[in-house]
Design a protein around this nucleic acid. Structure first.
Lengths: 196, 196, 196, 196
DNA sequence: CGTTAACCGAGACGGTACGTCGTGTCTTCAC
DNA sequence: GTGAAGACACGACGTACCGTCTCGGTTAACG
C-alpha cells in the first residue's frame, strides 16, 4: 500500500507538462538559454513547483531523458534485414528524427563530455537501444548467415554511427530510405554468398 | 598591402593564448561554467580585451572552432587500406582523442542543435575532414577494387560514424586499434573477391 | 487597507540597513568610490536586492536623502533668541555636524548642480528646515521687537549661510558656541534698542 | 633661465582649451559623468595629451580650479558700503553667477568632503576671496564706525554665507540686487547710530 | 639643413563598477 | 501540504571608463 500523505496530492499532470515544456525550450534555445522561469511559464506552472520536484536544472534534464527513454523491442522474424530494420527504423525516428529525444540528444552529448554521471547515462541508454540489433546479428550468425570474421558489435557501431553522425554532425534528416540503404550495404558486406 | 591603422597594434599573441585558455576551460568545465573572467585570467589578459576582439562568448566559441580546424591531407598510396588509415587515424587522434578539438566537439554539437550558423559550420568541417576518404574510395573504385553497388559516401559515413559514436555517445577511447578494426571490417565487406 | 501582495514580503529592515551602509560608504569615500557592491556587502545584502528596490545608484541616493530628512519643530518660547537657538542648534548638529545628513550634504550639493530634480529636492529640504526660524522672526516682529526695515528671509539666509559656509566651504566644525555667537550678533543688529 | 628641452614644444593653447572643455563638461554632467574622453574630444585633443599633462582626473580638476582662481582686489574708498560692494559684487559674479568657477564650485565642495587636500584648497581660496571684506571692516572699525562687540570675521561669514547658500543650496541666482540688500541689512545692524 | 627628441592622434591593454539576468533558496498567501 | 508569487544571496554577462602603454606621424630647436 502506497503511503498516502496528508495534504493536497500532487498534480500528476504537471510532470508531463513540465517535461514537454523543458524539451521544447531546450530544443529551441539550447540548455543554457532555456530558463527555469521559461520552462515553468510554458508548462503553466510556478517556478517553485519545478524546484519542489527536481532539485535543480540537471535533475530535470535527467528526468526528461528518463521519461523519453523507451526500450525498442526487436521482433525475431528469422530474417536479418527485417530484424535490423525493426530495430533501427524506430530508433532513427526516435533518436534522430523530430521526436523529443532527438532534440535533447545533442544537449546530452555536450553534458556527457564533462559529467561522469551523464556519460554513464548516455552510454547505457545508447547501448540498450541497440541491444536488439546485437541479438539479431547473433541469431543470424547462429543460422550461419554471417561471413567469417564479422564482429557483431562493430557492425552495430557502424550502422548506428552512420545514423547518429548524419543527424548530429551533418544535421541532415535520417529518413527511412537512408536507414534502409545503410542496412542493405552492411548486409551486402557481411553475409555469405549463399545468404540472401 | 594592409593599411596600418593608427593606434597601438593588437597583441597577436593574445589570440593564441585566449583560444588555448578558452578551450581548456570549456573542456574542463563545460561551456556554461567556462567564465569569460576565468578564460581571461587563464590567458593572462583583461576581460575587456576579450570583448574588444569578440563581441560575446558565442563569437569566441566560433573563433576557437575556426582556429582548431585543420584540413587532413590524404596520401595517395595506391592501397585503399593505407589511404583510409591515413585519413582516419589522424582524424581519430584529432577529433576523438585528447586534442583540443575533441574536447570542444560535444559543445559544438550541442550548439549546432539550435543555431543554424553553427550547424553549417560543423557540417562543413566534418565533411572536409572526411573528403580524403571519399577520394580514396573513388580511386579504389576506378582501380576496380570495389564491389558492385557500393555507395562511397555511405561507406565513409559508416566508418566515421562508428568512430564518433564511440567517442561522443559511448565515451570510450577511439584507439588506433579500433580504427584499424573498423576499416578492416569495412574493406572486407566492400572489396571484390580478387582484391586483397 | 493596503492590499497584501502574493509573494514573499520585502524585508523591511533592509531599507534601513542599506541607507545606513550607503551613507557610511559615501561619507567615507565619496559618491563615486562608494560601490553598490560595497554598500550591499556593508548592509549584509545581495547586490540584486539593491537593484530590486532602486533602479540605480542615483535613485538610492535620493532615497537616502528622503530618509534623512527630518522636520525640525521650533518651540514658541516667546523669546526670539531661544527660538532661533531651538531651530539652529539641532540644524547645526544635523546638517553640519557629524550626523549622516551632514556627511551626505556635499554630495547632494554637487548633484544639484547638474540635476534639476536634485536641485528642487535640496532647496525644498533646506527651506523647510529653516521655516521655523522664519516663523520665530515673524512672531518677534509682531511683538514689535524688530527694527524697521529688517528683512526676515534675508536674516535667516545670513544665519544659515554662515553655518553652512563654515561647514562646507571652510571645513570647520559648526560648534554650539559658533551658532550662539552668530545668533547673538544677528540679534544685536536687528532688534530695537528696547528689545533685549 | 628656463630649461628649454630639445624636441617639439608643447602647444600652450591646449591648456586653455582643455580647462574650458573640462569645466563645461563637469558643469553640464557632473564630475563622474564628465569623461576624460569627452573632455579631450571637446577640447579637440587626444586623450593621451590629457594624461601627458595631468596624471589623472583629480589633477586636472585641481588645475582647473587654479586657473579659475583670481584674487579680488578691494578698493579703499573710505566708505564701508562701497568697499563691501567692491568685494562681494565681483565675488557673486564669479563664484555664484554663471561663470566657470561657479559651475565647478559644487563639485569642489563634494570633493572636499572626503579629500583633505581639496578641503585645504577650497578653504584657502574662499578665505582669500573674502580677505578684502575683512580688511574693509577693520578699516571701518578703526574709523569708529562699528558698534561695540561686532565680530568682523563673523560678519564676513554671514554676508558670504548668505550668498553661497542662495547659490548652492537654494539654486537661486545671486543678483546684484540681492548682494546689495544683504550688505545693507548687515551694515544697518553693525554700524553705530552716528555712522552712515 | 638634416637630426632628433618631444609632441600629438589613435587605440589596445589590465582593471573595475555598473546594471541585467538566471539559479537555487526562502517565505508568505490562497486553496 | 500543495501551488503561485516573489524576495533573497550569489555570480556571470556585456558595457563603459580609468590610467597605462605603444604605435605612426608631426614639428621645432639643435648641431
Amino acid at each position: 500500500m502506497t503511503k498516502r500523505s496528508r495534504g493536497r496530492p500532487r498534480d500528476e499532470s504537471v510532470d508531463t507538462a513540465v517535461v514537454e515544456a523543458a524539451v521544447a525550450e531546450i530544443a529551441e534555445k539550447g540548455l543554457t538559454a532555456a530558463t527555469m522561469e521559461a520552462i515553468a511559464a510554458r508548462a503553466g506552472v510556478g517556478r517553485a513547483t519545478l524546484y519542489r520536484r527536481w532539485p535543480n536544472k540537471s535533475a530535470l534534464l535527467y528526468f526528461c531523458a528518463d521519461q523519453l527513454a523507451e526500450v525498442i523491442q526487436p521482433a525475431d522474424t528469422g530474417d536479418l534485414r527485417k530484424d535490423l530494420l525493426t530495430v533501427f527504423e524506430p530508433l532513427a525516428e526516435l533518436s534522430y528524427g523530430d521526436g523529443p529525444l532527438a532534440l535533447l540528444a545533442p544537449t546530452f552529448i555536450a553534458a556527457a563530455a564533462h559529467d561522469e554521471q551523464m556519460r554513464a547515462f548516455v552510454a547505457d541508454n545508447v547501448l540498450s537501444r541497440r541491444s536488439g540489433a546485437v541479438v539479431a546479428l547473433r541469431r543470424a550468425r547462429r543460422r550461419g548467415e554471417l561471413r567469417q570474421g564479422v564482429n557483431v558489435n562493430l557492425t552495430v557501431d557502424m550502422i548506428a554511427g552512420a545514423l547518429s553522425d548524419r543527424a548530429y554532425l551533418l544535421g541532415k534528416p535520417v529518413t527511412s530510405a537512408y536507414v534502409r540503404s545503410v542496412i542493405d550495404q552492411v548486409i551486402a558486406g557481411i553475409v555469405t554468398e549463399r545468404g540472401s
